[in-house]
Nucleic acid binder design. Structure first.
Lengths: 236, 236
DNA sequence: GAGTGGTCTAGACCACAAT
DNA sequence: TTGTGGTCTAGACCACTCC
């Protein structure tokens, strides 16, 4: 009956239609989106199919439905959750301070043993590698050593990280699917101590983070924070 | 047609049926749950209704569906989120190790300056105070210094913490509403070092946690973990 | 009362897994 | 080949909001 069936299911096409409409600003927070009726007509599907699409978006907190009234674009929520995503530059700026950074290393290389395993790619797969130190009002607060999957972020080497941090670039380049992280406390080895301008052996928070995108590992990063100058916090 | 319509929707009844079955252990991780057909018959509803129930549980990651095969109870996810809630005793036991603990201090006292502010109570409000060290196979992995709001956990002093950790008792006594936490890295002062059996000055993870219940502060805890023996991890 | 979402049905065809 | 889930329909009745 329909023109093409094998492709994406219709309820997904409707979800995508609504999502992209929201993304493009056609409907903004609090706006009413078309009724089930209207969407059913527009897409030539039954109301149940539209209902599924809209209900799922509602479960995902993209839309809010009010019986008898209509369906609205939900308020933004944003990542209260964690350690994991926020950009260090934003954090510094939120505090009203000035962010800057120094690129110590930027190179590309072929994946070898420990990294092929981390990224779950074949040996020889192209990776980018960077080491960057971030400053808050000129005081070093984070040293970031990062490996990036070139397949997902091909322009990584061309970035100006003083404008957009690696994290910010990656968020834009490859939509974030998930994050794994761990935190531990370690003594600063000499190279880290030098970069962070702290005595060797000073306790540091070490955050190890792996980000996933499109079912692949997008990046693997190890971040050192001087214990005396930084603290991770959150709320549930 | 049906006996009662106003009550809970049928798809919800089916969800609850499956959820309670999983909770009671009728179906365990990896088990197959009844097919859509079977559930539709059992509840006397159409397959679409069952489909909705099961799909929603699947979206909530309680079930896993495999086309052509069946519907299974998903692997436990638990606490992907955080640092914040899990019982240290469970963590140790999950690892297959033996948990034990030593109570170094257990007292009650009246709230004074810094604590009245932390708890947002009047001076003189009754608080309990405990210091406990937790062991994994006899190796100290956490020192926990905790203040507890007596109004929310009146039996705190009577607990046997080797059976139920403070955290576990509090979770049971006062339903958790929210958590605030922060993590930092610090050098172990002498008293902490002694309790954790590590050299003074060794880097430690310090987790500060405040739990809320019934719109009040239920407890405030400071936990020290030897950096060499512990790591916080999570996933989103 | 008109319009919205909330729920439900009794079929149907398909893709996929197990056999 | 059989049984499972994945999707879809063209209706239906209800509860609710808003005019």
């Amino acid at each position: 009956m329909t023109t093409e069936d094998v492709a994406t299911p219709r309820y997904l096409r409707i979800k995508n239609y609504l999502l992209s409409g929201i993304e493009k600003g056609r409907w903004k927070e609090g706006d009413v989106v078309p009724t089930e009726q209207a969407l059913a007509q527009k897409f030539g599907v039954s109301r149940m199919t539209v209902n599924r699409a809209v209900n799922e978006l509602s479960a995902e907190k993209v839309l809010t439905r009010v019986q008898g009234s209509g369906t609205y674009v939900a308020k933004q929520k944003y990542q209260a959750t964690l350690i994991a995503i926020k950009s260090i530059a934003d954090e510094v700026r939120d505090r009203g301070h000035e962010h800057s950074c120094e690129v110590h290393l930027l190179e590309q290389c072929k994946a070898q043993e420990p990294l092929t395993h981390q990224f779950d790619v074949a040996p020889g797969h192209l990776l980018f590698h960077s080491t960057i130190v971030h400053f808050d009002n000129g005081v070093p607060i984070q040293s970031e050593d990062r490996w990036v999957n070139a397949a997902l972020a091909p322009d990584y080497m061309a970035q100006d990280f003083s404008v957009k941090t690696p994290n910010e670039y990656l968020m834009a380049a490859a939509p974030l699917q998930g994050v794994r992280y761990s935190v531990e406390a370690m003594s600063a080895p000499s190279d880290i101590a030098r970069m962070l301008e702290i005595p060797e052996g000073e306790p540091c928070l070490v955050l190890f983070r792996k980000t996933l995108s499109q079912d692949q590992v997008a990046s693997v990063a190890t971040m050192w924070y001087p214990g005396s100058r930084y603290q991770l916090a959150g709320e549930i």
